[in-house]
Design a protein around this nucleic acid. Structure first.
Length: 802
DNA sequence: TTAGGGTTAG
């Protein structure tokens, strides 16, 4: 029978202490259980003097029994009423009450009672402290825990093994593993519980290595393990992916009866699943005779972790076949990553609906997992809505929302949210930083990149491999390739992502040969490439025009590394084919591809068609793009420009009309120059202030000096009636030119001029930048929406194909 | 009357 006592009633650590009695007094007696030893009416009569003495007389026997009975059944309201009517309460009675609160999760009340007890002059004993220490752990109240610890030492009870073990558990739970270690070290006698508490304690703070070494030490001391030791150490193996150690422990257990324990079996299933061995996990799971919801969840979560999404759902169905077990909130959490992986938004929504219908929400972890799922599926609105409505948020929730923004290209929003987080008491962690840095990589100036790098160093997160990888990428994207390389070279622990990142950084700058050298170095150092490595490598070949090398790497993927090329790899190869100008080959390549072409693939064909001036093929490619992404304005603009160059004015008008009808607007071209103190932004035909006139003067001088008349050249194909309009919008005053001229006069000779641009460079400006780099003998670096163009001595690193 | 457990969010 469930208790009618509302357990959450007293559990509010923020509630002022003196409010508890007042609240209790207002609470109506709701317990209908009149079969208890003492009925409620006895409390009323007990207030007379005669009955008080009666109670005192019987305090030691019936009342104590009644109190224990209430406490054991979770009727804390009744227990409390009874307690308040007891005149003389010894340590035992206080202990019963404190234990009752702890068992019912009412930690704050347990601590409150302990203080009342002390204030009343009743001394705590060796039974009191384990309860009180557990309550401090339950409240995650380190200060109170330390005060109680001090009291224990003062009382001379610190040698009690139960108290010592409770302290270890409390400190580990709060995350103060050093304090737990200190208690453990100073214990005169340790038992199996002490060792087990340390083994599990290390796991709870995420240190599987020390847990394993503690376990080894325990075994070396000749102490025999029990089910708790096994569950603890298997947790360490799961945490660190120690498959060999996990198997070793499994073998040890096969000789004992521990293997038949359902919790041990579940821990084994979990360990194998987390070590990537679902085959072993399945075999063990099948051997469990009475499968609990936890065991099912371990399998469902295991499949989810190992990217076997369909199996996760299949196990949920199987679990329900017997009709006894039903999905719980942990099942929901385990099902959300598979929804994201399959990009099955409807499935994700149905999991969300199920959680609502079954009363699982609000729930911090579940809501965070839902934010993550919506973000992964590209649905920012519901993610924002959920995040906004959360009663409680922790750092992980903030990280999930920030990552949702960056993954979906909402970099500004990500940066704003990150600023909000920094203004709170929460301190960003490595995940926060690794989630926000891609936004800085996309939007930030080199100056801002340096600032966030400084902040990361201050947080002491710069040695984290995840974070360092993001910093390398950020510097690469912000244009400081040397700095990116320097950080990469100094990294102590490089992983495959570190190599992929640095190869990608050189790729986007068009230094394909260096990317290839880095790939060889990576192989020599024993790193196994993955699919992403080949995306970086093939992009390097594509941007640098290394056609033969690109094909060789593409062919080696399956042959030498057993990696099936994905759509991204096909896209890079298509760019390579596009460079050769063989459009038939490009068309055939798409037709023969084993994967369905995406908008990115058709975009590659569109670029190739534009470079060869093949309007018909461009139309086909554009049609495919717009069927997949109807709001792709870049595609409309490119096609419109091609029609204009071919003199097909009706088609230009048709596109213009269609865009207007669809409410699509051409992106405003914008170029940015970052100086050490300030960022300067230019738009086409910029006349924003008087100072700009100086830039125009410089542009005129330079244009005359380089002797280029791009302006005339680019307008020869326009019909006379449009010339006036085109002249006003001509490439001559495109934002990029203004930015380059500004950069030339604002930076020191010898240094490159770095310009960031939001859309691709037009052909006229590309020619202009090449000429200007030759004439002024300055290096001009332009970052467009896709890659970097390094203009030097009249040449561009992209090989005039972009 | 006291201490320890399996599944969960990036």
């Amino acid at each position: 029978m469930a208790s009618t006592f509302p357990h959450t009633y007293f559990y509010n650590s923020k509630r002022p202490r003196n409010a508890s009695r007042e609240k209790r007094a207002r609470t109506p007696q709701t317990n209908p259980d009149t079969d208890l030893i003492l009925k409620p009416r006895i409390f009323k009569t007990a207030r007379s003097k005669r009955n008080q003495s009666f109670l005192v007389e019987r305090n030691s026997v019936s009342l104590t029994r009644a109190l224990s009975s209430y406490v054991e059944r979770g009727y804390m309201k009744n227990a409390l009423d009874l307690f308040e009517n007891m005149r003389q309460c010894d340590t035992f009675i206080w202990n019963v009450m404190i234990r009752g609160f702890v068992d019912n999760g009412l930690f704050w009340d347990a601590v409150d009672f302990y203080h009342r007890m002390e204030f009343g002059g009743v001394r705590g004993d060796n039974f009191t402290y384990p309860f009180v220490i557990k309550a401090c752990g339950g409240l995650y109240d380190l200060a109170e825990g330390e005060r109680v610890h001090g009291k224990v030492i003062k009382s001379g009870l610190d040698l009690d093994i139960y108290i010592g073990n409770s302290l270890i558990i409390m400190y580990a739970k709060i995350g103060c593993i050093e304090s737990a270690e200190m208690v453990f070290r100073e214990m005169p006698v340790r038992d199996l519980v002490s060792w087990n508490s340390m083994i599990s304690g290390y796991v709870s703070v995420g240190d599987g290595w020390r847990s394993l070494s503690c376990f080894r030490e325990m075994q070396a001391s000749g102490i025999k393990l029990d089910r708790f030791s096994v569950i603890g150490i298997l947790g360490a193996c799961s945490l660190e992916g120690f498959l060999r150690n996990g198997k070793e422990i499994h073998c040890q257990m096969m000789r004992s009866r521990l293997e038949l324990d359902v919790m041990v079996q579940t821990s084994l299933v979990d360990m194998y699943a987390k070590c990537g061995r679902m085959d072993y996990a399945e075999r063990l799971f099948d051997q469990i005779t009475d499968k609990s919801i936890v065991a099912w969840n371990a399998m469902i979560g295991g499949y989810s972790l190992n990217a076997q999404s369909f199996e996760s759902f299949a196990y949920v169905r199987k679990m329900q076949e017997g009709g006894k077990l039903h999905p719980d909130w942990i099942t929901m959490i385990n099902l959300l990553p598979p929804c994201a992986q399959l990009e099955a938004i409807l499935l994700g929504k149905s999991v969300h609906g199920f959680a609502i219908r079954n009363g699982f929400l609000p729930h911090l972890v579940l809501e965070t997992a839902l934010v993550d799922m919506y973000g992964e599926c590209g649905k920012l609105k519901p993610a924002e809505c959920l995040f906004g409505q959360m009663n409680e948020r922790n750092l992980i929730s903030w990280n999930a929302m920030i990552a949702s923004y960056t993954k979906n290209g909402e970099n500004r929003k990500a940066m704003t949210l990150f600023q909000d987080l920094c203004n709170k008491t929460l301190k960003p962690d490595a995940t926060t930083i690794a989630s926000i840095l891609p936004a800085y990589a996309e939007l930030a100036s080199l100056r801002e990149a340096e600032q966030i790098h400084g902040y990361v160093t201050k947080l002491k997160l710069d040695s984290n491999t995840f974070v360092s990888n993001s910093i390398v990428f950020m510097y690469g994207k912000c244009g400081n390739l040397l700095r990116a390389r320097e950080i990469f070279d100094r990294m102590t622990f490089k992983d495959v992502i570190s190599w992929n990142t640095v190869i990608m950084a050189y790729a986007i700058h068009g230094f394909g040969r260096i990317s290839i050298e880095l790939f060889s170095e990576m192989r020599e150092k024993g790193f196994e490439p993955n699919g992403s490595t080949f995306v970086s490598l093939l992009l390097s070949c594509s941007v640098a025009g290394l056609v033969n090398e690109g094909w060789e790497y593409f062919n080696s993927m399956k042959r030498d590394y057993n990696i099936n090329p994905g759509i991204e790899h096909y896209g890079c190869i298509l760019d390579l084919i596009g460079r050769t100008g063989n459009l038939d080959h490009a068309k055939n390549f798409i037709e023969e591809m084993p994967l369905a072409p995406t908008a990115r693939i058709w975009g590659s064909l569109l670029t190739a068609s534009r470079n060869k001036g093949d309007v018909e093929l461009a139309e086909i490619a554009a049609e495919h793009i717009l069927s997949l992404e109807h709001d792709n304005t870049g595609c409309y603009v490119l096609l419109s420009n091609m029609y204009a160059e071919a003199g097909r004015w009706e088609d230009v008008e048709r596109i213009k009309f269609h865009m207007k009808k669809e409410g699509l607007e051409k992106s405003v071209g914008c170029s940015v120059v970052d100086l050490s103190s300030k960022t300067f932004r230019f738009v086409n035909q910029d006349r924003s202030d008087n100072e700009i006139n100086m830039v125009y003067d410089v542009l005129d001088i330079i244009s005359k000096k380089i002797g280029e008349d791009v302006y005339v050249h680019s307008l020869t194909k326009f019909r006379p009636s449009d010339l006036e309009k085109k002249r006003a919008n001509s490439a001559k005053s495109h934002s990029l030119r203004l930015a380059i001229c500004f950069g030339l006069i604002s930076t020191t000779i010898g240094n490159p001029v770095l310009v960031r641009k939001n859309i691709r460079i037009c052909e006229a400006c590309h020619r202009f930048a090449k000429r200007i780099s030759e004439t002024t003998k300055r290096e001009i670096i332009v970052r467009d929406s896709k890659i970097f163009h390094h203009f030097n001595g009249g040449h561009c690193s992209c090989g005039d194909y972009w």
